[in-house]
Design a protein around this nucleic acid. Structure first.
Lengths: 215, 215
DNA sequence: ACCTGAACACCGTTCAAGT
DNA sequence: ACCTGAACACCGTTCAAGT
Protein backbone atom coordinates (compact mmCIF):
# COMPACT_ATOMS: atom_id res chain seq x y z
CA UNK A 1 0.00 0.00 0.00
CA UNK A 2 2.31 2.77 1.19
CA UNK A 3 5.59 2.32 -0.63
CA UNK A 4 6.19 6.02 -0.17
CA UNK A 5 8.88 6.59 2.42
CA UNK A 6 9.26 9.87 4.28
CA UNK A 7 12.62 11.67 3.85
CA UNK A 8 13.34 10.44 7.37
CA UNK A 9 10.97 9.08 9.94
CA UNK A 10 10.35 12.27 11.84
CA UNK A 11 11.03 15.03 9.30
CA UNK A 12 7.57 16.16 8.33
CA UNK A 13 7.92 19.31 6.30
CA UNK A 14 5.13 21.20 4.55
CA UNK A 15 5.87 19.89 1.10
CA UNK A 16 6.02 16.26 2.14
CA UNK A 17 2.75 16.58 4.01
CA UNK A 18 1.11 18.18 0.96
CA UNK A 19 2.38 15.33 -1.23
CA UNK A 20 0.91 12.69 1.07
CA UNK A 21 -2.35 14.63 1.33
CA UNK A 22 -2.67 14.92 -2.47
CA UNK A 23 -1.96 11.24 -2.81
CA UNK A 24 -4.63 10.43 -0.24
CA UNK A 25 -7.13 12.69 -2.01
CA UNK A 26 -6.35 10.94 -5.30
CA UNK A 27 -7.25 7.63 -3.68
CA UNK A 28 -10.27 8.39 -1.52
CA UNK A 29 -11.63 11.64 -2.99
CA UNK A 30 -11.85 15.12 -1.56
CA UNK A 31 -15.15 14.49 0.18
CA UNK A 32 -13.77 11.62 2.25
CA UNK A 33 -10.44 13.28 2.98
CA UNK A 34 -9.91 14.46 6.54
CA UNK A 35 -7.16 15.91 8.66
CA UNK A 36 -7.43 12.87 10.92
CA UNK A 37 -6.95 10.41 8.07
CA UNK A 38 -3.99 12.46 6.92
CA UNK A 39 -2.44 12.10 10.36
CA UNK A 40 -2.88 8.34 10.17
CA UNK A 41 -1.44 8.28 6.65
CA UNK A 42 1.62 10.16 7.87
CA UNK A 43 2.11 7.54 10.54
CA UNK A 44 1.87 10.20 13.20
CA UNK A 45 -0.76 11.37 15.62
CA UNK A 46 -4.03 12.63 14.13
CA UNK A 47 -3.08 16.25 14.75
CA UNK A 48 0.40 16.10 13.20
CA UNK A 49 -0.47 18.28 10.21
CA UNK A 50 -1.48 21.13 12.50
CA UNK A 51 2.13 21.63 13.49
CA UNK A 52 2.90 22.68 9.89
CA UNK A 53 -0.37 24.04 8.58
CA UNK A 54 -2.65 26.47 10.38
CA UNK A 55 -5.79 24.66 9.32
CA UNK A 56 -7.39 22.69 6.49
CA UNK A 57 -7.61 25.74 4.24
CA UNK A 58 -3.91 26.34 4.66
CA UNK A 59 -3.19 22.72 3.75
CA UNK A 60 -5.38 23.04 0.64
CA UNK A 61 -3.38 26.14 -0.34
CA UNK A 62 -0.26 24.03 -0.01
CA UNK A 63 -1.70 21.31 -2.24
CA UNK A 64 -2.63 23.90 -4.88
CA UNK A 65 0.92 25.24 -4.84
CA UNK A 66 2.24 21.70 -5.17
CA UNK A 67 0.07 21.18 -8.25
CA UNK A 68 1.31 24.43 -9.70
CA UNK A 69 4.91 23.32 -9.17
CA UNK A 70 4.16 20.12 -11.07
CA UNK A 71 3.46 22.26 -14.15
CA UNK A 72 7.20 22.81 -14.39
CA UNK A 73 6.66 26.12 -16.11
CA UNK A 74 10.40 26.66 -16.58
CA UNK A 75 10.30 24.11 -19.37
CA UNK A 76 7.63 25.93 -21.38
CA UNK A 77 8.73 26.99 -24.89
CA UNK A 78 9.43 30.56 -23.76
CA UNK A 79 11.50 31.38 -26.83
CA UNK A 80 8.74 30.51 -29.27
CA UNK A 81 6.42 33.44 -28.68
CA UNK A 82 3.13 34.10 -26.93
CA UNK A 83 0.95 31.74 -28.89
CA UNK A 84 3.14 28.66 -28.41
CA UNK A 85 3.74 29.48 -24.77
CA UNK A 86 0.06 30.11 -24.03
CA UNK A 87 -1.13 26.99 -25.79
CA UNK A 88 1.46 24.74 -24.18
CA UNK A 89 0.81 26.23 -20.75
CA UNK A 90 -2.93 25.61 -21.05
CA UNK A 91 -2.49 22.07 -22.30
CA UNK A 92 -0.07 21.27 -19.54
CA UNK A 93 -2.37 22.77 -16.93
CA UNK A 94 -5.24 20.66 -18.21
CA UNK A 95 -3.12 17.49 -18.26
CA UNK A 96 -1.76 18.05 -14.78
CA UNK A 97 -5.17 18.74 -13.30
CA UNK A 98 -6.73 15.74 -14.99
CA UNK A 99 -4.10 13.50 -13.41
CA UNK A 100 -5.74 14.49 -10.14
CA UNK A 101 -9.45 14.70 -10.89
CA UNK A 102 -10.38 14.70 -7.20
CA UNK A 103 -8.24 17.77 -6.62
CA UNK A 104 -9.46 19.95 -9.49
CA UNK A 105 -12.15 21.72 -7.45
CA UNK A 106 -9.57 22.41 -4.78
CA UNK A 107 -7.20 23.98 -7.32
CA UNK A 108 -9.95 25.91 -9.08
CA UNK A 109 -11.34 27.33 -5.85
CA UNK A 110 -8.36 29.34 -4.67
CA UNK A 111 -5.81 31.70 -6.17
CA UNK A 112 -2.27 30.35 -6.23
CA UNK A 113 0.02 33.14 -5.10
CA UNK A 114 3.27 31.30 -4.48
CA UNK A 115 6.43 33.08 -5.67
CA UNK A 116 6.72 30.50 -8.47
CA UNK A 117 3.18 31.24 -9.65
CA UNK A 118 3.76 35.00 -9.58
CA UNK A 119 7.06 34.65 -11.44
CA UNK A 120 5.36 32.58 -14.14
CA UNK A 121 2.56 35.11 -14.45
CA UNK A 122 5.09 37.86 -14.83
CA UNK A 123 7.00 35.97 -17.48
CA UNK A 124 3.79 35.34 -19.37
CA UNK A 125 3.03 39.08 -19.47
CA UNK A 126 6.57 39.76 -20.61
CA UNK A 127 6.17 37.30 -23.46
CA UNK A 128 2.88 38.80 -24.58
CA UNK A 129 4.10 42.38 -24.41
CA UNK A 130 7.25 41.42 -26.31
CA UNK A 131 4.89 40.24 -29.06
CA UNK A 132 3.08 43.54 -29.20
CA UNK A 133 0.22 43.37 -26.72
CA UNK A 134 -0.19 46.22 -24.22
CA UNK A 135 0.36 44.98 -20.63
CA UNK A 136 -3.30 45.22 -19.61
CA UNK A 137 -4.40 43.29 -22.70
CA UNK A 138 -1.71 40.72 -22.04
CA UNK A 139 -3.17 40.16 -18.60
CA UNK A 140 -6.70 39.89 -20.01
CA UNK A 141 -5.55 37.30 -22.52
CA UNK A 142 -3.77 35.12 -20.00
CA UNK A 143 -6.68 35.36 -17.57
CA UNK A 144 -9.14 34.35 -20.28
CA UNK A 145 -7.05 31.38 -21.38
CA UNK A 146 -6.54 30.24 -17.82
CA UNK A 147 -10.23 30.45 -16.98
CA UNK A 148 -11.22 28.45 -20.04
CA UNK A 149 -8.69 25.80 -19.09
CA UNK A 150 -9.84 25.66 -15.47
CA UNK A 151 -13.47 25.48 -16.51
CA UNK A 152 -12.64 22.71 -18.94
CA UNK A 153 -10.60 20.68 -16.47
CA UNK A 154 -13.31 21.03 -13.84
CA UNK A 155 -16.00 19.88 -16.26
CA UNK A 156 -13.92 16.93 -17.40
CA UNK A 157 -13.06 15.93 -13.83
CA UNK A 158 -16.72 16.00 -12.85
CA UNK A 159 -17.51 13.83 -15.85
CA UNK A 160 -14.73 11.37 -15.02
CA UNK A 161 -15.73 11.04 -11.39
CA UNK A 162 -19.47 11.14 -11.80
CA UNK A 163 -20.00 7.42 -12.28
CA UNK A 164 -23.15 7.69 -10.21
CA UNK A 165 -24.49 10.57 -12.33
CA UNK A 166 -26.62 8.64 -14.78
CA UNK A 167 -26.60 10.03 -18.29
CA UNK A 168 -30.09 10.79 -19.48
CA UNK A 169 -29.15 10.77 -23.14
CA UNK A 170 -31.82 8.80 -25.00
CA UNK A 171 -30.85 5.88 -27.25
CA UNK A 172 -30.71 6.59 -31.01
CA UNK A 173 -33.90 4.60 -31.50
CA UNK A 174 -35.73 6.55 -28.85
CA UNK A 175 -38.43 8.92 -30.17
CA UNK A 176 -36.86 11.60 -27.95
CA UNK A 177 -33.66 11.27 -29.93
CA UNK A 178 -32.69 14.74 -30.83
CA UNK A 179 -30.00 16.97 -32.24
CA UNK A 180 -28.15 17.15 -28.94
CA UNK A 181 -27.79 13.40 -28.82
CA UNK A 182 -26.77 13.27 -32.46
CA UNK A 183 -24.15 15.92 -31.87
CA UNK A 184 -22.88 14.07 -28.79
CA UNK A 185 -22.34 10.98 -30.92
CA UNK A 186 -20.05 12.96 -33.21
CA UNK A 187 -17.94 14.55 -30.48
CA UNK A 188 -15.75 12.89 -27.85
CA UNK A 189 -16.09 14.33 -24.31
CA UNK A 190 -12.81 16.21 -24.29
CA UNK A 191 -12.20 16.93 -27.94
CA UNK A 192 -13.40 20.53 -27.89
CA UNK A 193 -10.52 21.75 -25.73
CA UNK A 194 -8.04 22.10 -28.55
CA UNK A 195 -10.40 23.83 -30.99
CA UNK A 196 -11.72 26.04 -28.19
CA UNK A 197 -8.22 27.08 -27.23
CA UNK A 198 -7.24 27.73 -30.84
CA UNK A 199 -10.38 29.75 -31.43
CA UNK A 200 -9.59 31.99 -28.48
CA UNK A 201 -5.98 32.37 -29.61
CA UNK A 202 -7.13 33.18 -33.14
CA UNK A 203 -9.49 35.79 -31.80
CA UNK A 204 -6.81 37.43 -29.68
CA UNK A 205 -4.36 37.27 -32.59
CA UNK A 206 -6.69 39.34 -34.70
CA UNK A 207 -6.94 41.81 -31.82
CA UNK A 208 -3.29 42.59 -31.54
CA UNK A 209 -2.53 46.29 -31.64
CA UNK A 210 -6.19 47.18 -31.62
CA UNK A 211 -7.78 48.51 -28.45
CA UNK A 212 -10.83 46.32 -28.15
CA UNK A 213 -11.24 45.21 -24.57
CA UNK A 214 -9.79 48.41 -23.21
CA UNK A 215 -13.40 49.40 -22.48
CA UNK B 1 -35.08 37.86 9.88
CA UNK B 2 -37.17 35.38 7.94
CA UNK B 3 -39.74 37.45 6.09
CA UNK B 4 -39.95 34.67 3.54
CA UNK B 5 -43.21 32.80 4.02
CA UNK B 6 -43.70 29.25 2.78
CA UNK B 7 -46.53 28.73 0.27
CA UNK B 8 -48.41 27.28 3.23
CA UNK B 9 -47.11 26.25 6.59
CA UNK B 10 -46.67 22.55 5.88
CA UNK B 11 -46.26 22.35 2.11
CA UNK B 12 -42.56 21.77 1.72
CA UNK B 13 -41.89 20.87 -1.89
CA UNK B 14 -38.52 20.33 -3.50
CA UNK B 15 -38.35 23.70 -5.19
CA UNK B 16 -39.23 25.67 -2.10
CA UNK B 17 -36.65 23.80 -0.06
CA UNK B 18 -34.00 24.48 -2.71
CA UNK B 19 -34.91 28.18 -2.67
CA UNK B 20 -34.50 28.40 1.09
CA UNK B 21 -31.25 26.42 0.94
CA UNK B 22 -29.79 28.72 -1.73
CA UNK B 23 -30.80 31.72 0.30
CA UNK B 24 -29.13 30.27 3.38
CA UNK B 25 -25.97 29.52 1.39
CA UNK B 26 -25.94 33.09 0.11
CA UNK B 27 -25.97 34.32 3.68
CA UNK B 28 -23.64 31.97 5.55
CA UNK B 29 -21.54 30.40 2.78
CA UNK B 30 -21.34 26.87 1.46
CA UNK B 31 -18.80 25.76 4.07
CA UNK B 32 -21.06 26.65 6.98
CA UNK B 33 -24.24 25.34 5.37
CA UNK B 34 -25.65 22.15 6.84
CA UNK B 35 -28.73 20.00 6.49
CA UNK B 36 -29.49 20.67 10.14
CA UNK B 37 -29.41 24.44 9.73
CA UNK B 38 -31.62 24.07 6.67
CA UNK B 39 -34.15 22.19 8.79
CA UNK B 40 -34.12 25.01 11.32
CA UNK B 41 -34.45 27.60 8.54
CA UNK B 42 -37.48 25.78 7.21
CA UNK B 43 -39.06 25.96 10.66
CA UNK B 44 -39.29 22.20 10.71
CA UNK B 45 -37.39 19.41 12.35
CA UNK B 46 -33.70 19.09 11.48
CA UNK B 47 -34.34 16.15 9.18
CA UNK B 48 -37.20 17.71 7.21
CA UNK B 49 -35.25 18.02 3.97
CA UNK B 50 -34.62 14.27 3.90
CA UNK B 51 -38.26 13.66 3.16
CA UNK B 52 -37.81 15.41 -0.20
CA UNK B 53 -34.16 14.90 -1.03
CA UNK B 54 -32.25 11.64 -0.78
CA UNK B 55 -29.16 13.32 0.65
CA UNK B 56 -27.06 16.47 0.54
CA UNK B 57 -25.81 15.72 -2.98
CA UNK B 58 -29.37 15.43 -4.20
CA UNK B 59 -30.20 18.78 -2.60
CA UNK B 60 -27.19 20.37 -4.28
CA UNK B 61 -28.41 19.01 -7.61
CA UNK B 62 -31.74 20.68 -6.89
CA UNK B 63 -30.03 24.00 -6.16
CA UNK B 64 -28.05 23.77 -9.41
CA UNK B 65 -31.28 23.17 -11.34
CA UNK B 66 -32.84 26.14 -9.57
CA UNK B 67 -29.94 28.33 -10.66
CA UNK B 68 -30.30 27.08 -14.21
CA UNK B 69 -34.00 27.96 -14.18
CA UNK B 70 -33.11 31.48 -13.09
CA UNK B 71 -31.28 31.91 -16.40
CA UNK B 72 -34.68 32.10 -18.03
CA UNK B 73 -33.27 30.76 -21.28
CA UNK B 74 -36.62 31.14 -23.05
CA UNK B 75 -36.02 34.86 -23.22
CA UNK B 76 -32.67 34.55 -25.02
CA UNK B 77 -32.56 36.28 -28.43
CA UNK B 78 -33.14 32.98 -30.27
CA UNK B 79 -34.09 34.68 -33.52
CA UNK B 80 -30.87 36.64 -33.78
CA UNK B 81 -28.51 33.82 -34.67
CA UNK B 82 -25.81 31.78 -32.93
CA UNK B 83 -23.44 34.56 -32.04
CA UNK B 84 -26.02 36.76 -30.31
CA UNK B 85 -27.57 33.78 -28.56
CA UNK B 86 -24.23 32.39 -27.38
CA UNK B 87 -22.94 35.72 -26.13
CA UNK B 88 -26.14 36.58 -24.29
CA UNK B 89 -26.34 33.12 -22.78
CA UNK B 90 -22.80 33.34 -21.43
CA UNK B 91 -23.27 36.82 -20.07
CA UNK B 92 -26.46 35.83 -18.36
CA UNK B 93 -24.87 32.72 -16.91
CA UNK B 94 -22.03 34.78 -15.52
CA UNK B 95 -24.40 37.39 -14.06
CA UNK B 96 -26.66 34.79 -12.47
CA UNK B 97 -23.77 32.90 -10.91
CA UNK B 98 -22.14 36.05 -9.59
CA UNK B 99 -25.37 36.93 -7.81
CA UNK B 100 -24.67 33.81 -5.74
CA UNK B 101 -20.90 33.73 -5.29
CA UNK B 102 -21.11 31.15 -2.51
CA UNK B 103 -22.94 28.75 -4.81
CA UNK B 104 -20.69 28.96 -7.87
CA UNK B 105 -18.52 25.97 -6.87
CA UNK B 106 -21.68 23.98 -6.28
CA UNK B 107 -23.00 24.81 -9.76
CA UNK B 108 -19.64 24.26 -11.44
CA UNK B 109 -19.12 20.88 -9.78
CA UNK B 110 -22.05 18.97 -11.22
CA UNK B 111 -23.75 18.55 -14.57
CA UNK B 112 -27.25 20.00 -14.75
CA UNK B 113 -29.42 17.48 -16.53
CA UNK B 114 -32.90 18.78 -15.83
CA UNK B 115 -35.34 18.65 -18.77
CA UNK B 116 -35.09 22.45 -19.04
CA UNK B 117 -31.29 22.28 -19.30
CA UNK B 118 -31.42 19.56 -21.93
CA UNK B 119 -34.03 21.44 -23.95
CA UNK B 120 -31.87 24.56 -23.88
CA UNK B 121 -28.82 22.59 -24.95
CA UNK B 122 -30.79 21.13 -27.81
CA UNK B 123 -32.04 24.53 -28.90
CA UNK B 124 -28.50 25.86 -28.82
CA UNK B 125 -27.31 23.12 -31.16
CA UNK B 126 -30.26 23.81 -33.45
CA UNK B 127 -29.34 27.47 -33.61
CA UNK B 128 -25.71 26.74 -34.42
CA UNK B 129 -26.50 24.14 -37.07
CA UNK B 130 -29.03 26.49 -38.64
CA UNK B 131 -26.12 28.92 -39.01
CA UNK B 132 -23.99 26.37 -40.81
CA UNK B 133 -22.02 24.51 -38.15
CA UNK B 134 -22.03 20.70 -38.24
CA UNK B 135 -23.75 19.27 -35.12
CA UNK B 136 -20.55 17.96 -33.53
CA UNK B 137 -18.83 21.32 -34.01
CA UNK B 138 -21.87 23.08 -32.64
CA UNK B 139 -21.56 21.01 -29.48
CA UNK B 140 -17.85 21.74 -29.22
CA UNK B 141 -18.49 25.45 -29.51
CA UNK B 142 -21.20 25.56 -26.88
CA UNK B 143 -19.11 23.41 -24.53
CA UNK B 144 -16.10 25.69 -24.96
CA UNK B 145 -18.12 28.84 -24.34
CA UNK B 146 -19.78 27.35 -21.30
CA UNK B 147 -16.50 26.20 -19.79
CA UNK B 148 -14.90 29.61 -20.23
CA UNK B 149 -17.90 31.20 -18.55
CA UNK B 150 -17.90 28.73 -15.66
CA UNK B 151 -14.16 29.14 -15.16
CA UNK B 152 -14.55 32.89 -15.21
CA UNK B 153 -17.46 32.96 -12.77
CA UNK B 154 -15.62 30.63 -10.42
CA UNK B 155 -12.50 32.77 -10.48
CA UNK B 156 -14.48 35.94 -9.90
CA UNK B 157 -16.46 34.39 -7.07
CA UNK B 158 -13.28 33.24 -5.36
CA UNK B 159 -11.90 36.75 -5.71
CA UNK B 160 -15.07 38.31 -4.30
CA UNK B 161 -15.23 36.00 -1.32
CA UNK B 162 -11.54 35.76 -0.57
CA UNK B 163 -11.35 38.73 1.78
CA UNK B 164 -8.91 36.80 3.93
CA UNK B 165 -6.69 35.94 0.96
CA UNK B 166 -4.16 38.71 1.24
CA UNK B 167 -3.00 40.10 -2.10
CA UNK B 168 0.76 39.90 -2.42
CA UNK B 169 0.94 42.49 -5.16
CA UNK B 170 3.78 44.88 -4.32
CA UNK B 171 3.14 48.62 -4.21
CA UNK B 172 4.20 50.67 -7.29
CA UNK B 173 7.13 52.09 -5.33
CA UNK B 174 8.32 48.66 -4.29
CA UNK B 175 11.57 47.52 -5.96
CA UNK B 176 9.75 44.25 -6.74
CA UNK B 177 7.27 46.20 -8.81
CA UNK B 178 7.03 44.35 -12.07
CA UNK B 179 5.15 43.96 -15.29
CA UNK B 180 2.46 41.81 -13.71
CA UNK B 181 1.63 44.54 -11.21
CA UNK B 182 1.70 47.20 -13.91
CA UNK B 183 -0.65 45.16 -16.06
CA UNK B 184 -2.95 44.62 -13.09
CA UNK B 185 -3.21 48.37 -12.61
CA UNK B 186 -4.48 48.73 -16.17
CA UNK B 187 -7.09 45.98 -16.02
CA UNK B 188 -10.13 45.69 -13.76
CA UNK B 189 -10.69 42.23 -12.22
CA UNK B 190 -13.60 41.23 -14.45
CA UNK B 191 -12.99 43.24 -17.60
CA UNK B 192 -11.45 40.41 -19.61
CA UNK B 193 -14.67 38.42 -19.81
CA UNK B 194 -16.16 40.34 -22.69
CA UNK B 195 -12.98 40.43 -24.81
CA UNK B 196 -12.31 36.77 -24.00
CA UNK B 197 -15.79 35.78 -25.08
CA UNK B 198 -15.58 37.85 -28.26
CA UNK B 199 -12.17 36.39 -29.10
CA UNK B 200 -13.54 32.87 -28.83
CA UNK B 201 -16.58 33.76 -30.91
CA UNK B 202 -14.37 35.42 -33.52
CA UNK B 203 -12.21 32.31 -33.67
CA UNK B 204 -15.17 30.01 -34.12
CA UNK B 205 -16.67 32.36 -36.71
CA UNK B 206 -13.58 32.00 -38.84
CA UNK B 207 -13.90 28.22 -38.48
CA UNK B 208 -17.36 27.89 -39.91
CA UNK B 209 -17.58 25.39 -42.71
CA UNK B 210 -13.98 24.31 -42.23
CA UNK B 211 -13.24 21.03 -40.52
CA UNK B 212 -10.75 22.06 -37.90
CA UNK B 213 -11.79 20.67 -34.56
CA UNK B 214 -13.37 17.57 -36.02
CA UNK B 215 -10.87 15.34 -34.27
C1' DA C 1 -48.73 6.78 6.73
C1' DC C 2 -46.28 10.42 8.34
C1' DC C 3 -43.35 12.91 11.79
C1' DT C 4 -39.79 13.36 15.32
C1' DG C 5 -35.57 13.28 17.57
C1' DA C 6 -32.25 10.15 19.75
C1' DA C 7 -28.23 7.72 18.34
C1' DC C 8 -24.19 6.42 15.44
C1' DA C 9 -20.13 7.32 13.19
C1' DC C 10 -17.83 10.64 11.94
C1' DC C 11 -15.62 15.73 11.44
C1' DG C 12 -12.04 20.29 12.48
C1' DT C 13 -9.84 22.34 16.06
C1' DT C 14 -8.32 23.47 20.82
C1' DC C 15 -5.69 22.79 24.73
C1' DA C 16 -4.53 20.55 29.20
C1' DA C 17 -1.51 17.23 30.41
C1' DG C 18 2.37 14.87 29.76
C1' DT C 19 7.61 14.21 28.10
C1' DA D 1 10.12 23.05 23.76
C1' DC D 2 7.78 19.60 21.69
C1' DC D 3 4.28 15.80 21.44
C1' DT D 4 -0.11 13.56 22.45
C1' DG D 5 -4.78 12.58 22.73
C1' DA D 6 -8.96 13.79 25.33
C1' DA D 7 -12.60 17.01 24.82
C1' DC D 8 -15.71 20.38 22.52
C1' DA D 9 -18.80 21.70 19.18
C1' DC D 10 -20.20 20.37 15.42
C1' DC D 11 -21.55 17.25 10.99
C1' DG D 12 -24.69 13.65 7.59
C1' DT D 13 -27.62 10.04 7.98
C1' DT D 14 -30.36 6.19 9.99
C1' DC D 15 -34.09 4.38 12.32
C1' DA D 16 -36.80 3.14 16.50
C1' DA D 17 -40.43 5.15 18.63
C1' DG D 18 -44.20 7.81 18.59
C1' DT D 19 -48.73 10.01 16.34
Amino acid sequence: MADRTPPTRTVLNREYIATVALDLIDRIGLAKFSMRKLGAELGADPMAAYRHYADQEDLYDGIAELLFDRLDTDSLPWAKGWRQVSATYCERLRDTLLEHPHAVTLFASRPVRSPAAIATGNRMIETLTADGFPPADALRISRSLREFTIGHALTMAVLTLGTEHRSRKPAPTDPAYNLLAEAADGATPGDHFHPGLQAMLDGFSADRGRTRGRR
